[in-house]
Design a protein around this nucleic acid. Structure first.
Lengths: 101, 101
DNA sequence: TGCGTATATTAAATAATAATAATTTTTTGG
DNA sequence: CCAAAAAATTATTATTATTTAATATACGCA
């Protein structure tokens, strides 16, 4: 059957959740920042001009989908891109477009 | 400033809308079917085992984001993938994964 | 024109997300 | 242990998306 061999229901749900995590301007901005390099929550809040709890909530969504990872460094927690698919998509949608891709 | 040169607010919103359109299992299935080739609404409903109005609603979301296009052929309307980014992402996420990409 | 098929739109009810504010936990340093 | 800083969680309310059912539109043909 068409289009059913690769994508079973479980895989579809997982993919939809993945895209849902990317479906918010703030989270896309967070991703674009983290692609440049890891950042702590406080810095993200300042770069985004958002409250700490708000940043934390968005990070928690990205974390729960495995898109970002984190590491405590002393008193702060640094976030980074964990899911390589995100980097690939970023390159494909953003970077390539710069050269009219 | 980090991550702000390329992605202005407008572009971020557009991208978020793009991902939102992909954030549903049914719409992902529709896309996977249309990537194999164009299909009319009735066939889609049968392949997806969904009611006609339900398929139409999902198509309308994909249409409004420019992800699919359509063409009337006699009494039926055929839908096809219009946004090339979708094909790229599909190849990247689905096809590459088959060979352990 | 009128009927049947194909598709789209609308409406109403429910569920999911987002934004904001308040509270809590964890860690560092005195 | 205590206070302050950093981050996470919770609660509340507002907004948006999804589902289902009902209705409407467009086309082809007798």
């Amino acid at each position: 059957m068409i289009g059913q061999d690769i994508l079973n229901e479980e895989k579809l749900e997982e993919l939809a959740e993945f895209f849902k995590a990317l479906s918010h301007p703030v989270r896309l901005r967070i991703i674009s920042i983290l692609i440049e390099g890891k950042q702590c929550v406080k810095n993200l809040g300042e770069l985004l001009n958002l409250s700490q709890p708000s940043v934390s909530q968005h990070l928690s969504i990205l974390r729960s989908r495995g898109i970002v990872g984190w590491k405590r460094e002393g008193s702060i927690i640094c976030y980074y891109i964990k899911d390589e698919r995100v980097k690939k998509i970023y390159n494909l949608l953003i970077k390539e477009e710069e050269n009219g891709g």
